[in-house]
Design a protein around this nucleic acid. Structure first.
Lengths: 190, 190
DNA sequence: CCACTAACGCAAACCTTTCGCTTTTATGTG
DNA sequence: CACATAAAAGCGAAAGGTTTGCGTTAGTGG
């Protein structure tokens, strides 16, 4: 069902998927996302519209796939020497990227064309991965660390909630304050 | 722009809006949301498709409006006699309603057809209203209460995040645990 | 190297969306 | 209360997007 789990992942299928994804990114950059149409995308990618409809079902599922790709972190979180600094820095970066107009669009696209929640789950998995990297490093340093889920629930979730439902209440200090709350209130004491 | 802020809210416009909304609800119940089409909706509502397109722009904005309407709380939160009980009961109810398949659909519909975030903001405003009702009652009883934003950030946001991004990690106990965390860790001490 | 079949291209049928114009009807004013 | 004004709805046609069946191409495994 999902285009990600293609039964025949090599060769032409892979080329078509890459070409279509690239076409979506190009056309999104040139015109708005609102004006995207499947025939335009297909033409740019050098395939026929029916190919796109067959593989993705409709345009929102295609946009969802492309959005998830763009929300994938490109680099591991910075290592600043302490858990507190790493988390604050990562949270500020995450918030800045996700709360930007393009970031919010990608998040909403990822959610919209995603009936079974697979793509949204992938977004969350990216954040878990980044957080775990920071926590593993801190553990290796011998620091006491909070649970991954504590950070997801009380740092990531509040930021995402405000991004989606309460725009206008966001700045870097908010991200830092959430990390501070985890440190002073929610972290298991040694 | 938004159909909610109609320049001419009375009479025929209001009747058309009600008829269209009712048609959407009926057709959603009869067939799936995937099979909804504007001409079907218009026909059921006794208007022409062009009327729907003119007022709502496209079908996702219409679905967003209808979804927000369905997410409006119908009753104030139950008064069980204490802040703790009121919050736990409300959180469990909220989670159950929002995490159900129809609830998740409405949330995603509300987010999808909502470029400026107005409808999503309304959803959040409903939750704020319910929480404030509980907090005001507790204050009147003389209880110490947390901030509204503390509850939004650390009870509502984690639930919504899991509903949207991490389905399958949800049960009533999770809602109660979030309230417990606020009580033992995040509430200002008297 | 061959058989098998998923995936693609093509084209026709169908449906959705938009546009210009006309008609209806709230709403405010004399 | 009648009238003027303009917002909103109706209508039909044209443009464009979506869906589907069938033949062909080209990965994949034996």
């Amino acid at each position: 069902m999902s285009p990600k789990a293609a039964a025949r992942p090599g060769g032409r299928s892979a080329r078509v998927q890459q070409a279509v994804h690239a076409a979506v990114r190009e056309l999104q950059a040139e015109h708005g996302r609102a004006e995207l149409t499947v025939p335009q995308i297909a033409s740019r990618a050098g395939v026929t519209p029916s190919t796109v409809y067959r593989r993705w079902g409709d345009i929102s599922e295609l946009l969802s796939d492309v959005a998830v790709e763009r929300l994938r972190p490109e680099t591991p979180p910075a290592d600043l020497g302490s858990l507190r600094e790493d988390l604050e820095h990562w949270a500020v970066d995450f918030l800045e990227e996700m709360s930007s107009p393009p970031g919010r669009s990608y998040i909403r696209d990822a959610l919209a064309g995603d009936p079974d929640g697979g793509n949204a789950g992938q977004c969350s998995a990216y954040a878990v991965e980044q957080v775990d990297t920071i926590l593993d490093r801190a553990t290796a340093r011998g620091e006491h660390v909070p649970d991954t889920d504590t950070l997801m629930d009380h740092v990531v979730a509040p930021m995402m909630y405000r991004i989606l439902f309460r725009p206008g209440l966001l700045d870097a200090q908010y991200a830092r304050d959430l990390v501070t709350t985890v440190f002073y209130r929610l972290m298991p004491l040694p």
